[in-house]
Simulated assay, not measured.
Amino acid sequence: MSDAKVRIDFSKIARFSLDSKRIELVNSGLNNIWGYKLRGNGQWYGIEANDLGFSIVPMEIGTGFPGIGSERLRSYQPWMPELHKFRVGGTGISGVAFADDLEGTFPEEWKDVAFIANPITSSINAVRIVRNSDGTVTAEHLPDFFNLRRRLV
């Protein structure tokens, strides 16, 4: 889009060209994105602050999630289905990291585990998210990686 105006309201992700002359909306939705992560394998993931069934989700180009504004980028764009039934708790989920490193120093049991900063519950939640060979995605809520409240009790 050259010299085009792009409306970036509600909850949308956009990308710029390297020369900053073009901008393109790439996905929309989630209720309030407070974490966005590019993994070493080239896959993008996002989290929402409000824990409405999308604790950690793939954020592929063209995806749309119900949420603030519930606005589709294109009229034919389907909503991504709720990924899981569990909730990690809290309404201020605020960051995401994966146990990815180039040296492979994390143990195998941490493969595909997202660490989600959750200041409301004073914890670091752990969610294993796997992209299956058939294209589906599964998520499993693991025990918290860290929970300050348990340490204080």
Results as ranks from 00 to 15, higher is better:
110 W>N: 13
62 G>H: 09
71 E>K: 03
73 L>Y: 10
51 D>L: 05
96 V>G: 02
82 E>K: 15
69 G>W: 01
91 T>I: 09
57 V>Y: 14
46 G>A: 11
104 G>N: 02
92 G>C: 07
88 V>I: 15
52 L>I: 15
122 S>Q: 12
122 S>N: 12
109 E>W: 06
81 P>D: 08
69 G>M: 05
61 I>N: 09
89 G>C: 07
68 I>W: 13
105 T>I: 13
97 A>F: 01
139 A>D: 01
113 V>P: 07
135 G>R: 05
140 E>D: 00
37 K>S: 13
51 D>C: 03
131 R>G: 00
127 V>P: 03
66 P>V: 06
129 I>N: 05
44 W>F: 11
45 Y>N: 10
42 G>S: 01
101 D>S: 09
112 D>C: 10
77 Q>R: 00
82 E>N: 12
134 D>M: 03
74 R>H: 10
45 Y>W: 15
54 F>R: 09
103 E>T: 05
74 R>P: 00
51 D>R: 02
111 K>C: 14
63 T>I: 07
51 D>A: 05
48 E>P: 02
61 I>V: 11
75 S>D: 06
126 A>N: 05
64 G>S: 11
83 L>I: 14
43 Q>V: 03
74 R>N: 06
60 E>W: 13
80 M>L: 12
78 P>C: 09
61 I>P: 01
118 N>Y: 03
108 E>Y: 11
43 Q>K: 08
54 F>K: 06
92 G>A: 13
130 V>P: 03
93 I>M: 04
61 I>A: 09
139 A>K: 08
122 S>G: 09
80 M>H: 14
84 H>M: 11
72 R>K: 14
90 G>E: 12
107 P>G: 07
128 R>E: 07
95 G>E: 02
74 R>S: 09
128 R>A: 09
129 I>C: 04
47 I>C: 04
99 A>S: 07
46 G>C: 06
66 P>T: 08
130 V>M: 06
128 R>P: 06
47 I>K: 04
125 N>I: 04
34 W>V: 04
49 A>P: 00
127 V>K: 03
99 A>I: 01
113 V>N: 01
47 I>H: 04
76 Y>L: 07
56 I>W: 05
111 K>T: 15
83 L>E: 11
108 E>P: 07
123 S>K: 14
69 G>Y: 02
82 E>F: 09
98 F>P: 10
82 E>C: 07
96 V>A: 03
81 P>S: 13
136 T>G: 04
118 N>Q: 02
41 N>E: 05
112 D>S: 12
121 T>I: 11
59 M>N: 07
42 G>L: 00
139 A>T: 08
92 G>D: 14
123 S>M: 10
105 T>D: 01
53 G>L: 03
65 F>N: 07
53 G>N: 03
95 G>Q: 00
119 P>S: 05
48 E>H: 11
85 K>I: 03
120 I>V: 14
93 I>E: 02
41 N>P: 04
139 A>R: 06
49 A>H: 10
45 Y>A: 08
